[in-house]
């Protein structure tokens, strides 16, 4: 079957899923995605307890040091250890992902359920309003936030989160609309369940898997957005390690030291790929339709 599932990709357009996997085929996306995400998470967690060097320690006698036994990934133009900064940068990356997806999920999900359960006229108004927000680029919003509140990790993640709210609202809405027409909801409604109780007990659990998939995809988008913002200096300010900022600082010495761009670039790529694959894998695993089919 080729169900038009409302998983929304980076551009906000619904993605039509391909043919479902047949049972028994290993879910490679899930495992590879999970592995890559795990790598980033472990790096971030370890950085709380230990990094090879102080990521802020400037040692000008050791600038542009290539990879060596003492500095595995070399040193940057301040003589700071790249590996240490990469590890602490993973923290920033994950933190941004968690907070922005959290903001989007916490606000967007109830909004979407409300839309899905609202009377037709209200539904239509809210949906159009949501579409209007969806059309507004999250990056632009984040740049506006940075202009008003000053660039920081916090403004970046809140702005990315706000920018992602309409995506979650749309996913939650379409899931809710489906669930609302299901027999168990009709049964619950005929038994007198209404409003919030209905939403929490019957709708939310049944759209949770959709949301989880979207969260993983949005996580990847958020990571990319934070990296872009930091690269443009609208995000995490120097000298706090952030992969986007590391990339920005490396590009200023690109002509003489191209190697410095590699590691933050790899970090971003791994994290984004990981969360995207994880999202794909989760979708394959949890999609309620797929489950029903099997």
């Amino acid at each position: 079957m080729s169900a038009a599932r409302d998983v929304v990709d980076a551009t906000g357009a619904p993605v039509v899923a391909g043919t479902d996997e047949t049972a028994g085929v290993a879910n490679w996306s899930l495992w590879i995605g999970g592995g890559l995400v795990g790598l980033v998470v472990v790096m971030a967690l370890v950085s709380f307890a230990w990094t090879p060097y102080d990521p802020y320690f400037v040692d000008v006698t050791n600038r542009f040091g290539g990879p060596s036994p003492t500095n595995l990934l070399g040193t940057d133009q301040f003589g700071r250890d790249v590996l240490s900064r990469l590890m602490v940068g993973a923290r920033t990356t994950l933190f941004v992902g968690i907070v922005s997806v959290g903001v989007a999920g916490v606000v967007g999900t109830p909004l979407g359920i409300l839309m899905g359960m609202a009377p037709a006229w209200l539904h239509r108004i809210l949906l159009r309003a949501n579409d209007l927000l969806l059309a507004f680029p999250a990056l632009l919003l984040a740049i506006m936030f940075a202009a008003v509140f000053g660039p920081s990790t916090a403004t970046a993640m809140v702005a990315i989160g706000i920018g992602t709210i309409p995506v979650f609202a749309r996913i939650a809405r379409s899931g809710t609309v489906q669930v609302m027409s299901s027999e168990y909801v009709l049964a619950a409604r005929s038994a007198g369940r209404r409003g919030v109780r209905l939403a929490v007990r019957h709708v939310l659990p049944n759209i949770a898997s959709l949301l989880l998939v979207q969260a993983s995809v949005s996580f990847a988008i958020a990571i990319l957005a934070e990296a872009a913002l930091s690269f443009l200096q609208f995000g995490t300010p120097s000298p706090i390690p952030s992969w986007g900022l590391m990339l920005f600082q490396a590009q200023s010495v690109l002509a003489v030291n191209p190697g410095l761009t590699v590691w933050p670039g790899v970090g971003i790529a791994v994290a984004v790929l990981g969360f995207n694959l994880l999202g794909d894998g989760l979708r394959d695993r949890f999609d309620p339709r797929l489950a029903g089919h099997q």
């Binding site: 400037v58 301040f78 660039p151 200096q233 300010p237 120097s238 000298p239």
Partner: peptide, 25 residues
């Protein structure tokens, strides 16, 4: 200024001064 501040921050940390860098437009 950002680059100089990064080094100054690191220098000051050696004597126990925390320099909170805020780059402003």
């Amino acid at each position: 200024a950002v680059n100089a501040a990064t080094t100054v921050q690191s220098n000051l940390a050696q004597v126990g001064i925390t320099a909170d860098i805020t780059p402003v437009e």
